[in-house]
Each structure stands twice: as C-alpha cells, then as structure tokens.
Design a protein around this nucleic acid. Structure first.
Length: 208
DNA sequence: TAGGCCATCTGGTCCT
DNA sequence: AGGACCAGATGGCCTA
C-alpha cells in the first residue's frame, strides 16, 4: 500500500507555541538518573542507577543543574530549556530531512517503473537489500561463465540469501512478499548483459 | 472506520 | 555544554 503516491503532505502545525513542554518541570531533573529505559532501549542504560551507584550519575545530575555556575531564576531556566528544546527540535527535523533525502536518492537508483507508486521507507530498504543481493549473485554467475567454468552447484547459502534461505532475509521477517529465488528468475540466472541491469529492466516487485 | 505510513516532538543517552 | 542519535508518543493524511 502506498498511501502517499503524490508525495503531497499538508504542513503540520508545530505544537511549540501551544504546548511548549507538556510535563516538563523541574522534576524531570531529579528523576533523570533513575528513570528506567523503555523495554527496547538497552544502549547505555546504567543498571546501577536504580541503586544509586551509577558512576557519573551524580556528576551528570550536577551538570544538568548547571554545575557550579551561578543559580539562575526559574524564568531564565525555563527560557533556556525552551530555547534548547526548540534548537534540538530543529536539528532533529533537519536530521530526518537528510535521512529522507538519502532515502530518496536510494529510490532514485533503484529500478522501478515510472508509474510505480513511490516506495515506502521500509520497501525502499528491503528492495535495495534484495536488489544488491541479486546483483551480487548475478555477478558471481557471470564470473563463472566468463571464465568457462561451470557454475558450481550452489549451496543453499549461495543460491539463497545470506541466511541460507531462498528468500531475502529482510523479506522473510517483513510483511512483503518474498524475493524471487534465482531459479524463479531465469533472467538473473543467465549471464546477463549490462543492458539487463539498467534501471527499469527489473521491476521492484521482483525483489521485494 | 481501521490500519498503514509519515512528520514531528520529546526525553534519554552517548560523544566531542 | 551542546550536538548526534535513538526510540516512543502523538496526530494527520490516505486508502481499502
């Protein structure tokens, strides 16, 4: 499903002015070191923090409170927090825009038909992964035929994706249809001419 | 209307 | 101290 084929999107209204910091209060400073991470968040979580023994936690706490610098008024602190948050939001937005630009560039080099709906992010990544894998297999086979060697009876891990299956590993886990195996895709099994690899020669549905 | 996709905000963590 | 990165939450848009 491609919900935004046109790519048109209404500009969202930022919440910055209406609700600058829901839940943001000075309490946030006091619970920084002890707040447990979400289940999926593992990186950097200091287990000792809960017992109060986390090395550096106190230092960080002090740093967040402003260290030895002159204490600021609540108003100034609030202003500073707001300003920092706003800047962080801008950076984050910019970062995501860069990420999307890179994703668009990736879409641009993937073979799709002009009237294909725009690939979603996850589709783009899976397609790229499968496409690279297919090209790698193609080159390998082309190498063998070029030097007059019989293509070796492919071991399972050779014919299939790196995990030994016939399907692309990403597709396996995902909801999209599995990638075609080389056997199902004779065009990829035969020694290919460069023309066969030109963008557009293969539809993305061959790789998803 | 439900579900998928997306942009944005947010707070936590790590790094310089 | 501040920036980068990450993941969760939220709300809007779109399609089946």
């Amino acid at each position: 499903m491609a919900p935004h084929p046109s790519g048109a999107r209404a500009v969202q209204v930022t919440h910055e002015t209406e609700q600058p910091f829901p839940g943001a209060s000075d309490d946030e400073v006091t619970c920084v070191a002890s707040a447990p991470p979400s289940p999926t968040r593992v990186r950097g979580y200091c287990a000792e923090a809960e017992g109060g023994n986390c090395r550096g936690a106190a230092r960080k706490l002090r740093a967040r409170r402003g260290g030895r610098s002159r204490p600021k008024s609540e108003l100034a602190l609030s202003k500073q927090r707001r300003s920092r948050r706003k800047k962080a939001n801008d950076r984050e937005r910019n970062r995501m825009h860069n990420l999307n630009s890179a994703l668009d560039a990736l879409r641009g080099v993937l073979p799709t038909f002009p009237d294909d709906a725009k690939l979603t992010k996850i589709e783009t990544l899976r397609f790229a992964h499968n496409y690279i894998w297919a090209l790698t297999q193609t080159l390998r086979i082309a190498d063998h035929s070029l030097y007059g060697l019989e293509p070796p009876a492919p071991a399972c891990e050779e014919l299939g994706s790196p995990d030994g299956s016939l399907y692309s590993p990403v597709s396996q886990a995902g909801s999209l249809s599995p990638a075609t195996s080389l056997e199902e895709c004779p065009g990829l099994l035969a020694p290919v001419s460069p023309a066969c690899l030109r963008p557009g020669a293969l539809a993305f549905s061959d790789f998803l």
